[in-house]
Design a protein around this nucleic acid. Structure first.
Lengths: 143, 143
DNA sequence: ATTGCAAATAAGAATGATTATCATTCATGG
DNA sequence: CCATGAATGATAATCATTCTTATTTGCAAT
């Protein structure tokens, strides 16, 4: 998926903490992780990386375009691997399950809404909050 | 705009702090206010309401449907009067200027995206981050 | 291999937003 | 008017995040 020196190609030195964080995102079943979750997962696998470093590295990865930051409800940021294609999110308010979707019409209408008002669009965030109605939905938010 | 006992109709006692906060939103030129801003504006007009009360009242108003809470970038919540019609927001990243818009197509496509995946939609948030390109844009975020 | 220095790290203090606590005060029904 | 429960305000607590600082590391040039 990544060359060992992929970090260098984005202008970051290949340090152990950064490699650990990156491979965690590549290996994890959960696409969306918060700083706290990354911290705990690394701890659990024996890699004791300071929480401050996690925050720094996540921010660096975001700036480098490796990760994408999302502000879901709840005041904490979650990150996901930026694997090319843009998409928006549907979040289940019961179990926290996240599904991604992309709708070209929505994208186009957004651009139009912005340019019609003289704005130059930089970015946008669209989150749909819903119930997933899955039988497996544990009906509680996973922290 | 509001009957004097409008608060009662939503199950809240008509207390001074609540009336102050409500009329601030009704009077203010800025539709979007944070807790801190409400606090300072009330202070400035001689009404010394505790910050904790502001937070409490804003949350109560949100639950009562009087106010709508938004999570813009920057980690703090902003509130606006819930005056019926739903709309989304374009936020200028330079000056913080906010404009509202409504696009029926976007709304419809969102509903479709959710139901197509078996979700029951509860709510959504769509923020477009952009440059407003206004000559008056002071090119810095207003805190 | 050694040195030097910028970059990176860990630890914890500091910050900013928000919530919890709790004694006091207030609003409202009777 | 008065009791009673709700609301308030001052303050402490909490939570996520950022900053500070001392220390360590990467790595290129000796």
């Amino acid at each position: 998926m990544h060359q060992p020196d992929h970090l260098k190609t984005v202008g970051l030195k290949s340090t152990l903490p950064r490699l650990k964080v990156l491979s965690l995102f590549e290996a994890s079943k959960q696409r969306h992780l918060s700083a706290e979750e990354v911290y705990k997962l690394l701890l659990a696998s024996g890699d004791d990386v300071g929480l401050a470093t996690i925050y720094r590295v996540l921010t660096q990865f975001e700036q480098a375009g490796l990760l994408m930051r999302h502000h879901f409800e709840g005041g904490k940021s979650v990150f996901e691997l930026n694997q090319g294609e843009h998409h928006d999110h549907i979040v289940c308010m019961q179990c926290g399950h996240v599904e991604e979707f992309y709708d070209a019409t929505i994208e186009a209408r957004q651009k139009k809404a912005a340019t019609d008002r003289g704005f130059t669009i930089h970015d946008h965030s669209l989150y749909i909050y819903a119930d997933c109605n899955k039988p497996k939905c544990p009906n509680k938010i996973q922290s």
